[in-house]
Every structure is written in C-alpha cells, then in structure tokens.
Lab assay of single mutants.
Amino acid sequence: MMAYMNPGPHYSVNALALSGPSVDLMHQAVPYPSAPRKQRRERTTFTRSQLEELEALFAKTQYPDVYAREEVALKINLPESRVQVWFKNRRAKCRQQRQQQKQQQQPPGGQAKARPAKRKAGTSPRPSTDVCPDPLGISDSYSPPLPGPSGSPTTAVATVSIWSPASESPLPEAQRAGLVASGPSLTSAPYAMTYAPASAFCSSPSAYGSPSSYFSGLDPYLSPMVPQLGGPALSPLSGPSVGPSLAQSPTSLSGQSYGAYSPVDSLEFKDPTGTWKFTYNPMDPLDYKDQSAWKFQIL
C-alpha cells in the first residue's frame, strides 16, 4: 500500500520538471525561470610600474599592434585584453584634452560664430520673369535699313540677281523696263511654242516681248482663266512685280493683265486636223540634229 502513496517519478516537459499528477507549474501565473544575472567585471587597478610601461608604449604609438600589447601584458602581468581596453580609454582621454585646449585658446566670443544676415524675399530687387527677354536684342539694338529709291541700282540687283547668272552684270533701268511683257505680243502666236536658250531668258530683255519668248507657250493655258476669275487675268510678269519692288498687295496686282481676252486664246483648236509644230532653235543647249523629232501629229 505504501508504494502507491509515494509520488511517481519526475517528468520533464519543455525542460520543466513536473512532479506526478501536479500540474501547477503549467499555470499561467507561474513564470518561467529567468537567466542568472551576469556579474559585473571588477575594475582593474594599475600600479605605478604598470602605468609607466603603458605610458611609455603610448608615447611611441597610440595604436599598438597585438604583438606589442602581448609583450607589455607579459611585463606588467596583466591579460592582453586589459591592455587593449586601457589604450582605448587613453585615446579617448587624449582627444578630450585636445578639445579642452582648443576651447581655452579661443576667445569668449569666438564660440558663437556670427551668422550672415538672411536676406528677406521682398527687399532684394530681383529681375521680373513675367516678360520673356528678347534673345536677339531686336527691340533695343536692331534698326531696319532704310528703303532705297525705287530706281536705285541696288534694288535692281536684289531683284534680278536671283534669276540671272553670276557672270552677267546687273540690268540697267532701261533693260528692266523691257522685262514687262506686252499683251499683244504674248497673244499673237498662241499655238507656236519656241524653246529659246537659257541665257536669253536671263539677259535678253527682248525675249519677253517677242513671239518667240519663253513664256509665249504658256499663254494658251493662262488666258482661259479670265472668265472664271470674273475680271482681268493676273500676270506674273506684269508691271512692277518684276520691277523695283516685289512687295505689292494682291489688290494692286488684280488690275494688271496680259491684255484683252480673245477667243483665239482658248485651248480649242480651230482646225482639228492641224498639227502643233515646235520651232527648233539652233541655240538650244539640247543638241538634236534631227528636226523631225520636234513634229508630232495630233490624233
């Protein structure tokens, strides 16, 4: 009977010793046993002879290597770790002494450095960015050149030099007046198309007034536009458009034309069986010896 009264063996659950049927240790109110408190290391007290050895090595170098620390530790009968900690504390003490010396050398008012006064946003004049500046400075420094007289040679050079070769001289006033084509001369031969040399188009003023001019072949195509416009036809070669000034309004060009419109200028042929003959000019830059190549039959 006494065997049943004795408590059973101890069981360990999660490293906790349980005594038989008792489960009081598993209750929430019972805390787990805490780790033992780490003991504080005792402070090391250095003797005068030990301090002399350490100070002598510190005077040589503030960062001794492990071999120098072990050698000193053997002399003063201390572990190497204590020597390492002593050098660490000695360097910190040396830095603190240097900072105190710097503070003593500075004057009393030198510690508080005078800061520059901050400028207020409204006091300083700042350039306004509302208006974009002129990058080319046209509004201040540029002045347009004065327009020359209508009959000045410089204007003629600016007008005619675009179309004339570089080897030719500017046309005088008398020749510029001949550039304007007359109405009857352009409409006299509506079906004849003559190819003149390129030099005649640039230099010869008579080429624009003769039936064999460069633009005589364009007349049949330009004249039928007159009834559609409801007024006189516009002429690209009329009046002052080739003269001194090219800047004319469309209203000033509306009254200039080749001449009176005639039914002869239409595109319809009077004789459907007729042929169109292209007159060959020996001055043509295209060297075609066979003139029969310039004739064709309209079917």
Rank of each mutant, 00 (worst) to 15 (best):
residue 236 P to G: 04
residue 247 A to T: 09
residue 122 G to H: 10
residue 281 N to S: 11
residue 221 Y to E: 01
residue 86 W to Q: 15
residue 226 V to P: 02
residue 32 Y to D: 03
residue 58 F to I: 15
residue 293 A to N: 05
residue 244 P to N: 08
residue 157 V to H: 04
residue 201 F to D: 00
residue 286 L to T: 04
residue 140 D to S: 03
residue 146 L to S: 10
residue 80 E to T: 08
residue 161 S to C: 14
residue 93 K to C: 15
residue 76 I to F: 13
residue 162 I to S: 00
residue 9 P to R: 12
residue 163 W to Y: 01
residue 55 E to P: 15
residue 26 M to I: 11
residue 202 C to V: 08
residue 244 P to D: 02
residue 172 P to S: 05
residue 208 Y to V: 04
residue 115 R to G: 02
residue 266 S to F: 12
residue 27 H to S: 04
residue 172 P to L: 13
residue 174 A to N: 05
residue 142 Y to A: 06
residue 214 Y to N: 01
residue 268 E to W: 14
residue 55 E to F: 02
residue 167 S to F: 12
residue 157 V to T: 02
residue 34 S to I: 09
residue 60 K to E: 05
residue 164 S to C: 14
residue 219 D to V: 15
residue 257 S to K: 10
residue 77 N to F: 05
residue 261 Y to S: 02
residue 290 D to K: 14
residue 144 P to E: 00
residue 242 V to W: 13
residue 149 P to D: 04
residue 148 G to L: 02
residue 11 Y to A: 02
residue 141 S to M: 03
residue 51 L to K: 08
residue 161 S to Y: 12
residue 29 A to Q: 03
residue 167 S to W: 14
residue 149 P to A: 06
residue 78 L to F: 13
residue 83 V to A: 11
residue 188 S to E: 06
residue 52 E to R: 10
residue 222 L to F: 10
residue 23 V to L: 06
residue 105 Q to T: 03
residue 215 F to Y: 02
residue 64 P to T: 12
residue 77 N to Q: 05
residue 111 Q to P: 02
residue 134 D to W: 08
residue 88 K to C: 13
residue 167 S to Q: 03
residue 28 Q to D: 04
residue 48 R to G: 12
residue 183 G to V: 05
residue 262 S to N: 02
residue 238 S to C: 15
residue 166 A to C: 07
residue 208 Y to T: 05
residue 192 A to S: 08
residue 93 K to Y: 14
residue 256 Q to K: 12
residue 163 W to T: 00
residue 191 Y to M: 06
residue 86 W to D: 14
residue 142 Y to M: 10
residue 71 E to K: 10
residue 201 F to V: 02
residue 238 S to W: 12
residue 228 Q to T: 11
residue 277 K to M: 07
residue 282 P to H: 06
residue 268 E to H: 11
residue 124 S to L: 05
residue 3 A to T: 03
residue 68 A to Q: 09
residue 206 S to T: 09
residue 194 T to H: 08
residue 16 L to G: 01
residue 128 S to A: 08
residue 266 S to L: 11
residue 105 Q to N: 03
residue 127 P to S: 08
residue 287 D to S: 07
residue 273 T to Q: 02
residue 200 A to S: 11
residue 119 R to W: 01
residue 225 M to Q: 00
residue 226 V to W: 13
residue 16 L to F: 10
residue 196 A to R: 09
residue 295 K to C: 12
residue 161 S to M: 14
residue 37 R to C: 04
residue 47 T to I: 11
residue 47 T to F: 11
residue 62 Q to R: 06
residue 56 A to M: 04
residue 238 S to R: 08
residue 34 S to F: 09
residue 133 P to K: 07
residue 54 L to F: 11
residue 222 L to G: 02
residue 104 Q to V: 08
residue 189 A to L: 13
residue 73 A to Q: 14
residue 62 Q to F: 04
residue 212 S to W: 12
residue 102 K to Y: 02
residue 50 Q to E: 12
residue 130 D to E: 02
residue 253 L to H: 07
residue 261 Y to K: 09
residue 278 F to A: 00
residue 61 T to D: 05
residue 284 D to Q: 13
residue 57 L to W: 10
residue 186 L to R: 07
residue 143 S to C: 03
residue 299 L to I: 15
residue 174 A to V: 11
residue 79 P to Y: 13
residue 119 R to Q: 02
residue 232 P to E: 01
residue 199 S to N: 03
residue 195 Y to I: 09
residue 15 A to K: 03
residue 195 Y to R: 02
residue 297 Q to K: 05
residue 89 N to A: 14
residue 35 A to S: 07
residue 105 Q to A: 07
residue 237 L to H: 02
residue 111 Q to H: 02
residue 44 T to D: 12
residue 147 P to F: 08
residue 144 P to R: 05
residue 61 T to F: 10
residue 194 T to C: 11
residue 228 Q to Y: 14
residue 183 G to S: 01
residue 145 P to K: 08
residue 274 G to E: 00
residue 18 L to A: 00
residue 25 L to E: 01
residue 285 P to F: 07
residue 95 R to N: 13
residue 71 E to D: 09
residue 198 A to R: 06
residue 138 I to N: 06
residue 279 T to S: 02
residue 62 Q to W: 05
residue 82 R to M: 12
residue 88 K to T: 12
residue 265 D to K: 12
residue 200 A to C: 11
residue 281 N to Y: 14
residue 52 E to Q: 05
residue 93 K to W: 12
residue 240 P to L: 12
residue 48 R to N: 09
residue 260 A to M: 09
residue 30 V to E: 07
residue 192 A to Q: 04
residue 101 Q to G: 09
residue 259 G to A: 06
residue 93 K to T: 14
residue 166 A to I: 11
residue 46 F to T: 15
residue 58 F to Q: 13
residue 75 K to G: 12
residue 118 K to M: 00
residue 96 Q to D: 09
residue 257 S to E: 02
residue 71 E to Y: 14
residue 254 S to Y: 07
residue 173 E to H: 12
residue 118 K to T: 01
residue 129 T to L: 06
residue 237 L to T: 01
residue 288 Y to Q: 04
residue 216 S to D: 01
residue 104 Q to G: 04
residue 24 D to N: 07
residue 132 C to Y: 00
residue 131 V to M: 06
residue 251 T to H: 05
residue 183 G to H: 11
residue 106 Q to I: 01
residue 244 P to V: 10
residue 146 L to M: 07
residue 29 A to C: 10
residue 116 P to N: 03
residue 14 N to P: 09
residue 262 S to R: 15
residue 141 S to E: 02
residue 80 E to Q: 02
residue 184 P to C: 11
residue 104 Q to H: 08
residue 186 L to K: 07
residue 278 F to N: 00
residue 240 P to R: 12
residue 141 S to G: 06
residue 249 S to E: 04
residue 105 Q to R: 11
residue 168 E to I: 11
residue 173 E to R: 14
residue 288 Y to T: 05
residue 266 S to G: 05
residue 210 S to W: 15
residue 130 D to W: 07
residue 240 P to T: 07
residue 261 Y to M: 03
residue 222 L to R: 08
residue 241 S to D: 02
residue 218 L to T: 00
residue 285 P to C: 05
residue 201 F to N: 00
residue 96 Q to A: 05
residue 283 M to E: 00
residue 54 L to Q: 15
residue 176 R to D: 03
residue 55 E to Q: 04
residue 101 Q to S: 12
residue 164 S to H: 04
residue 135 P to Y: 06
residue 165 P to R: 06
residue 128 S to F: 04
residue 109 G to K: 10
residue 246 L to Y: 05
residue 20 G to N: 06
residue 150 S to R: 10
residue 229 L to W: 10
residue 230 G to K: 07
residue 30 V to L: 08
residue 259 G to P: 04
residue 236 P to D: 01
residue 199 S to I: 15
residue 258 Y to F: 09
residue 232 P to M: 11
residue 268 E to N: 05
residue 212 S to T: 05
residue 213 S to V: 13
residue 70 E to K: 01
residue 27 H to M: 14
residue 145 P to H: 06
residue 132 C to S: 06
residue 137 G to F: 05
residue 206 S to D: 04
residue 275 T to F: 03
residue 122 G to S: 08
residue 176 R to L: 10
residue 163 W to H: 00
residue 133 P to G: 06
residue 155 T to E: 01
residue 148 G to N: 03
residue 57 L to N: 14
residue 266 S to M: 10
residue 211 P to T: 06
residue 153 P to I: 13
residue 137 G to V: 08
residue 235 S to F: 13
residue 130 D to T: 04
residue 55 E to L: 08
residue 134 D to A: 01
residue 141 S to C: 04
residue 64 P to F: 11
residue 114 A to D: 04
residue 254 S to H: 02
residue 228 Q to H: 11
residue 195 Y to P: 00
residue 188 S to Q: 02
residue 251 T to E: 02
residue 106 Q to A: 06
residue 99 Q to H: 09
residue 197 P to R: 11
residue 195 Y to S: 01
residue 8 G to K: 02
residue 25 L to W: 10
residue 126 R to D: 08
residue 75 K to S: 10
residue 241 S to L: 13
residue 176 R to V: 05
residue 48 R to L: 11
residue 55 E to W: 09
residue 291 Q to K: 13
residue 89 N to I: 15
residue 224 P to H: 07
residue 130 D to L: 11
residue 128 S to V: 06
residue 201 F to G: 01
residue 81 S to C: 07
residue 97 Q to V: 08
residue 226 V to F: 14
residue 263 P to V: 12
residue 16 L to T: 00
residue 132 C to V: 09
residue 240 P to W: 15
residue 246 L to I: 04
residue 28 Q to N: 03
residue 123 T to A: 03
residue 188 S to F: 11
residue 91 R to A: 15
residue 289 K to P: 05
residue 142 Y to E: 10
residue 109 G to D: 10
residue 87 F to A: 14
residue 164 S to L: 14
residue 256 Q to Y: 08
residue 106 Q to G: 03
